[in-house]
Structure formats: C-alpha cells, structure tokens
Design a protein around this nucleic acid. Structure first.
Lengths: 120, 120
DNA sequence: ATTAAATATGATCATATACGCATATAGTTG
DNA sequence: CAACTATATGCGTATATGATCATATTTAAT
C-alpha cells in the first residue's frame, strides 16, 4: 500500500517530485480548466446522464460535447456506460466534488475580499 | 455574508452557474495546469522564496520563472513582497495545499487501481 | 436489408500560451 | 553618475487545443 499523497511534498513525509508526476498533476488540472467541461461536470453532479441530455443541458454542439466527455473519461473523471443506442456518463472520481468546492470557496473568498477593498 | 460555496452546485442549496463563474473556475484550474508552475508552488510550500532561488530550484530560465510567478500572483495564489533588489513570493491562498493533496490522492488511487488491473 | 437515431471521429481553422532571446526597469553600490 | 544586480517585459515562434463541419460507426427498428 502506498503512503498517502505527497506528490507535491506537503505531507509529513515529503517526496521528490518527478517530472512525470508533475505532468500528471498538471494534466488533471488542465482537464478541469475548460468552462464547457465544468458545465458538463456540473450537470453530472445530479447523477448519470446520456450524451443528448448533456448536449441539451449545456447548449453545446453534439460533436463538441462528445469530445469533452471523452476527455473527461480518459482522465478517469467520468465513467462511460453504453445502453443500446445511448451512452451514459457519470462522475467516477468523487474527489471532483471536493476539488470544486475548494476552488469555489477560495474564489468566493477572493471575490469577497476584492469587494471589501472597494466597499464604502 | 455569502453562503458557502455552491458555484458548481454541490452544496445543499444549489445555485445557477453563470458563464462568468465558470470562466473564473476554469481560469483557476488553468493556472494550475502547467508543470513549471506546479514546480514553483512546490518550492514555495516550504515558505517564502525570492525569484533567483526559485530559478535555481526549478531549473528554468529567469524570464520564464518570472512570468510564471506573475501568473500565479495575478491569480491570487501567490503574494509578492519587494525587499531591495529582490522580490519574494509566497503562497497566499492556503487552499492550494488541500487542492494539491486532493489531486495527488486521486491520481495515486488511479495509479494503484491501474496497476492492480495488471497485477498477477 | 434499409432506414433512422445516437454517438464518435477526421480534417481544418482559429486562438491561446509557453519558451527563448534580447532588452527594459528598478534598486544598489562605488 | 556609472556600473552592477535582480526582476520584469516586448517580441517572435512553436505547439497545443477548442470549435465547427462533414462524415463514420454502432445499434435499433421496420
């Protein structure tokens, strides 16, 4: 069993960061750095959805949504399930929830502070 | 006081996601999606450092490191402090720690699972 | 077997951005 | 003021990737 995360050296037992590990972490963040993908994730927070439902919910084109879903699936963030003609996607990596919560919380705090600077 | 994060609709009281909010969140992830920036953050986990120290620690060029530090500072992730000729950078947003822990943990789990598929 | 529906993919274009080089700016010291 | 150090920035280039259009692929229905 590998010890808990320390790829970025923040745990009690810091480790060296290989270029490969850095690339993996960067890639994960990159996958989450597109508004349309975040919109799709947001739609999936409520549960499994098929592609067409996501196309309608997101307002994107079918081709584009399909590509983004694949990107998320390849990253291990989404799971793919085929049922007849339809393909269902669902969130496979629960850490996404906390991840988004953290980022949102941080951004809201920033926003509040910025607002405070100008207030009154 | 704004209620705790729900920009991505995961809290008890889900909210609508504006395009602007999506762009902000995506931008935060994009800033974290470059290996060199992650390397710099990693160096800063131990505490405040000036640019030259970061240049040496990261192995990058001075110009490139300076640009990346600015990107991180503009995003509110780093704080900038000038002291004589030197400029010190430090992590200003503590959520970065948890963020990286989360991602690393998730990636390590993925890695373990992938390995398990092939093991024996 | 044909047709239709749902999804994926190839090709192209446009845009963003990381890097390197040279140089500018700011601050220090003589 | 001149020379030097630390950091930032303008510019050009290379690369990556997102959007769109057209088309391919898969599965179901008649």
């Amino acid at each position: 069993m590998s010890s808990p995360c320390s790829l970025l050296g923040m745990s009690k037992k810091p480790r060296v960061l290989t270029d490969e590990a850095l690339a993996l972490i960067a890639r994960r963040f990159a996958v989450l750095s597109e508004p349309m993908r975040l919109r799709l994730l947001h739609s999936l927070f409520a549960g499994e959805r098929h592609v067409n439902a996501l196309v309608e919910a997101s307002g994107g084109t079918q081709a584009n949504v399909s590509r983004h879903l694949q990107t998320l699936a390849n990253a291990g963030i989404l799971a793919r399930r085929k049922e007849g003609l339809q393909v269902f996607y669902a969130i496979a990596d629960p850490s996404i929830f906390e991840l988004c919560e953290l980022v949102c919380g941080s951004l809201e705090k920033q926003h509040t502070q910025r607002a405070g600077v100008f207030a009154r």
